[in-house]
Design a protein around this nucleic acid. Structure first.
Lengths: 243, 243
DNA sequence: AATTTTTTATTTGTCTGACATTTAAAAGTC
DNA sequence: GACTTTTAAATGTCAGACAAATAAAAAATT
């Protein structure tokens, strides 16, 4: 692992990259201890604060964890699915909000991916996951529910559907799509009638999942997508007309 | 934005989180300049090195960029799709390698998601993207190609297919699935016969995409998935028997 | 007056050295 | 042997300094 002191890039960035490469390539394995900050500053011929900045960069990506004390130090961190989920959600959310991605684009991506999970979920969902879907449908039917809570329940419903596929990699990928849509969905006001329609489609999907009928679930999701998009279109149109 | 000096968490982590929250919530908008390091250390009542560690954490996530000089400072960074892609690929790769995700699980997720793109790609792919797919198929037919180069070409083929959907959010999500599979695929040796089969399926898929037949493309991907999985199974079985 | 050059102020990047805090192992004590 | 104390090693934090980059302001030149 070498760095170039004459490079234009920050030393801390170079050091972080060098260590990151070692982790990704497998030179450093999970739970392996890195040299102490003092040793690293010797190796790279930089000061300790610079090494520390590099280590903080890695810690921010959950690539390492640090521990104080006699046997402490920086250790290569096992990237857990949970950590990856939350990173994914943050990144997706920012990506959508900062690049003014249209509702349609985000919606299309989300439902395309979700339909990919439906057949698997129809085969593998646990009774518990099905129960969660039913419970969320019930919750959605409460008229006292705010629009935000309705959206949150919607996310929980779809999360259960996706998790039903029993494929953690799929769940990880979908987490971003589903959750990052929530801020966009929150911009929509749900009338009693539109809620009714959505709930009915949710029931239809849950029925298909319960029956193990992946095709029917996929069709239900297709309907839900067009319903969501037309609903959003009318809300946005109404808002534009108001101006 | 406040931090708790008595918390167990590192001060730099708390400060980074506070600023991150401000960015995600929209309190800080793209290209907005953060206070200088000196001002931040005043505000948070910590030393400058601590502030710097916090800023490096944010820089590692591409949330800010820094600039030296009189009008320099730290600025909220627009998270570009390119940056998000590469983050996504790194995270997915590590997730798979560190959690010993099975080939089947990764493969299933990858093809499930890719099938979701196929119908859209059949409708929208540009001539250029189709040409890329054809070119990669041609490359794959060269017998001199190493197994690694064959895999790389495979990734390029599928990348073109996914990009054909003309939905950047989909492309972003798929980038992880497709590219993170490559290290797993690289563990497989491709015999002349298995290459022939894969190339034929690729052609079939490209034909379907060219004809605008999403359903046929989806079926081709299904076949490709089972072919890939049975190929992997036999390679792994042979390797196990050799021991 | 316009242009070029020089100066200056501001900000990040890096270094040195120090002390605080945490933690586990070693040493000491009963 | 079990418990307590000490010690050493590591990260976390701080203070102050200088280097380097950069743009604006000031000065010099044409």
């Amino acid at each position: 692992m070498k760095i170039d002191p004459n490079s234009s890039a920050d030393l801390s960035a170079q050091i972080a990259q060098a260590i990151k490469d070692a982790i990704v390539s497998g030179d450093l394995i999970v739970d392996q201890r890195l040299p102490s900050e003092a040793e690293l500053s010797d190796q790279f011929q930089v000061s300790r604060p610079t090494v520390r900045e590099a280590l903080k960069r890695l810690a921010a990506q959950s690539l390492i964890r640090t521990q104080r004390g006699a046997t402490g130090g920086a250790f290569v961190n096992r990237l857990s699915f949970e950590e990856a989920y939350s990173q994914q959600i943050t990144t997706s959310t920012l990506l959508l909000s900062m690049n003014s991605v249209s509702f349609d684009t985000a919606c299309e991506a989300r439902y395309a991916l979700e339909r990919a999970c439906a057949p698997l979920s129809a085969l593998r969902r646990t009774p518990d996951q099905l129960a969660t879907m039913r419970a969320e449908i019930f919750r959605q039917a409460q008229p006292s529910l705010t629009d935000e809570a309705f959206c949150a329940s919607d996310v929980a419903f779809h999360r259960a559907l996706v998790d039903g596929a029993a494929n953690p990699v799929l769940s990880y990928q979908l987490a971003g799509s589903v959750e990052a849509m929530q801020p966009l969905m929150n911009m929509i006001t749900f009338s009693a009638r539109s809620r009714e329609k959505i709930i009915s489609l949710h029931s239809q999907i849950a029925d298909a999942i319960e029956a193990g009928d992946g095709e029917a679930a996929t069709l239900g999701l297709k309907d839900l997508e067009s319903e969501t998009r037309s609903l959003a279109a009318s809300v946005f149109a109404a808002r534009a007309a108001q101006k």
